[in-house]
């Protein structure tokens, strides 16, 4: 799974910590998601979608290995 959360975050001028606080997780979790080390749950993906005001598949994409 690949994602463009870093880009979406930059568009809204949010730091990792800001985004983490908005969706109720730790900054390290946001860092791991951005680095593709952790695939978030549907709930967390929908929370991100709410913050970015975009559908989930706009910033999450399946990679070739998925």
């Amino acid at each position: 799974m690949e994602n463009t959360i870093k880009v979406e975050r930059a568009i809204l001028s949010l730091t990792q910590d800001d985004l983490a606080k908005r969706i109720g997780v730790s900054r390290q979790t946001i860092n791991s998601i951005e680095a593709n080390r952790y695939v978030p749950s549907t709930v967390l993906a929908l929370k991100l979608s709410e913050v970015f005001s975009k559908p989930v598949n706009h910033f999450f994409k399946l990679s070739e290995t998925d």
Binding site: G24, V25, Q28, Y38, P40, L44
Partner: peptide, 9 residues
Amino acid sequence: KEEDEMTIA
């Protein structure tokens, strides 16, 4: 200290 779904996993 900061419990979330990742720490649970």
